[in-house]
Design a protein around this nucleic acid. Sequence first.
DNA 1: TATAATCGCTTGCAGTTGCAACAGTTGCGC
DNA 2: GCGCAACTGTTGCAACTGCAAGCGATTATA
Lengths: 144, 144
Amino acid sequence: MLAQQQHRLIHDIYVMLDDGDRRVLETVDLSPLEFAVLQRLDPSQGRRLTDIGAELLCVKSTITRLVDRLEADGLVRRMPDPDDRRAQRLVLTPRGISVRDEAAELHSAAVERRLSLLAPAEQQLLCELLAKLRAGLQRDLAGA
Amino acid sequence: MLAQQQHRLIHDIYVMLDDGDRRVLETVDLSPLEFAVLQRLDPSQGRRLTDIGAELLCVKSTITRLVDRLEADGLVRRMPDPDDRRAQRLVLTPRGISVRDEAAELHSAAVERRLSLLAPAEQQLLCELLAKLRAGLQRDLAGA
DNA sequence: TATAATCGCTTGCAGTTGCAACAGTTGCGC
DNA sequence: GCGCAACTGTTGCAACTGCAAGCGATTATA
């Protein structure tokens, strides 16, 4: 019963947050998923497409085409993986870094505004509980 | 800073929950959004399509076509609204009720299993904090 | 009362995503 | 070394979604 309530709350909250994110990010021509990918990239050594897909729980073909778009916009570049000729390493271009930073700043400000409804102590507590929950879900997912 | 952390946690948790929901619900041929619609329907008096869309933050055309599918499957029926000839009231068919109940049971069990990672007292606390957050976001959304 | 603005829903179109099938690469057991 | 399973990324296809335009019904305004 309590679990159902938690699920519903998280669902409702996510829907509203995602809707807000979408509005903010479209000012820099990014979808929430594209932003999530950019945020997970490391400008120095890059990441493999499959790893990104696994982290965001979407199939490889989705990443392939999302990266196609980002690459066409000049935000990322596919580099051959030195250790595995099957793989590609995805790195941020200078332009990618600046767009990501700009998006992150806008996004941060919007998130800050919407999520500062709770008192700092409550926020701290909420973070701890959510972190515990996330860790449990990740273990559960790894086990299945 | 804390707000960013909250956002990330909610995002990650939602992605995992949604992925799990998708797997469970596809055994009864429903998408998470279709299930959300069914759960928000009242078998007695029905609801208008626009209201459902507003609650789920998706555009009306999405609801139109989602309802087309549900109606083709015999789960819901469009009824003329007695008070407004523009509107349609959506009601569950008997088959719709049984499918919704079956889905709800499967979904409940899966949610229960995944969300029982925290101690009951922690769950209670989490629910209170999330409820407060949701209420704040809803106010924020209504104001904008 | 007549006209305009709004509302509820649907349709055409374009963009995004998942699934299944595929080519090339790697690693393992033999 | 050889063959086979597993893995990385791509493509065709179908399904789902949002946006803009449109139609009939309703409400507001003059």
